[in-house]
């Protein structure tokens, strides 16, 4: 464990807690893409298949349970909660996210580190996580209104993978044989997708104006 990875995990944790807090306290999911949340739930499901078979550490297990629990409860809130689901704007959340899954699955079958079910599922989760934010970013472009909590959620979510990139660089130089091209390439692509959002987020923060995305 290094400081970059801890910062990444804490930022990731903060992002899901900000989202849960928003939905739970103001009982609204306005501006949140259900499709992105469903993709994240699938990411955790396919990545943590070895949750009970491959014990790494208490920290690792607890964090996995938190990410699984929070992502599924967020999906439940938006789909099932009698008050929250009324604020879900499904006409704006139109990205065909299941179309995103097939290329990830096919890619995972052909490009992976070992052709076993667990490894292919894990690789699938890496590819899917890289593009899972797309429905949310498309929805933001459409609705254009970004309330503070949603803005913070997306910022933290983008920052976590940026910290992981620093973690991979650190581990590459401090541990021999630490080479994981698949995770690195997917992680860089994932962070780049947040690129323009970061730009407008910092602009609004610097000029102290409400965050606006260009049409």
């Amino acid at each position: 464990m290094n400081i970059f990875r801890l910062a990444g995990d804490m930022t990731h944790l903060a992002s899901v807690l900000v989202l849960l807090l928003k939905i739970h306290t103001i009982k609204s999911c306005a501006g949140i893409s259900l499709k992105t949340q469903e993709l994240f739930a699938i990411v955790f499901l396919t990545r943590y298949l070895d949750l009970f078979t491959n014990f790494i550490s208490i920290y690792n297990t607890i964090m996995k349970l938190i990410f699984l629990g929070s992502s599924f409860s967020i999906v439940w809130y938006i789909r099932r909660h009698r008050v929250v689901r009324r604020s879900y704007d499904k006409d704006q959340d139109t990205f065909r996210h299941f179309f995103l899954m097939w290329p990830c699955l096919i890619l995972a079958i052909f490009i992976n580190e070992k052709f076993t079910l667990k490894e292919v599922m894990w690789t699938f989760s890496i590819y899917l996580e890289a593009i899972a934010i797309l429905p949310q970013l498309v929805m933001l472009q459409r609705t254009r209104n970004i309330d503070n909590l949603t803005g913070q959620y997306i910022f933290l979510l983008g920052a976590y993978r940026a910290f992981y990139i620093l973690n991979w660089i650190y581990r590459y130089f401090t541990e021999e044989h630490y080479v994981h091209w698949i995770t690195w390439v997917a992680g860089v692509i994932q962070t780049l997708l947040y690129g323009d959002f970061f730009y407008y987020y910092f602009q609004s923060w610097k000029n102290n104006v409400k965050l606006e995305l260009p049409a």
Partner: peptide
């Protein structure tokens, strides 16, 4: 080896 290391990350 590939299986161990990459799986200790979340």
């Amino acid at each position: 080896q590939s299986d161990g290391i990459s799986k200790d990350e979340l």
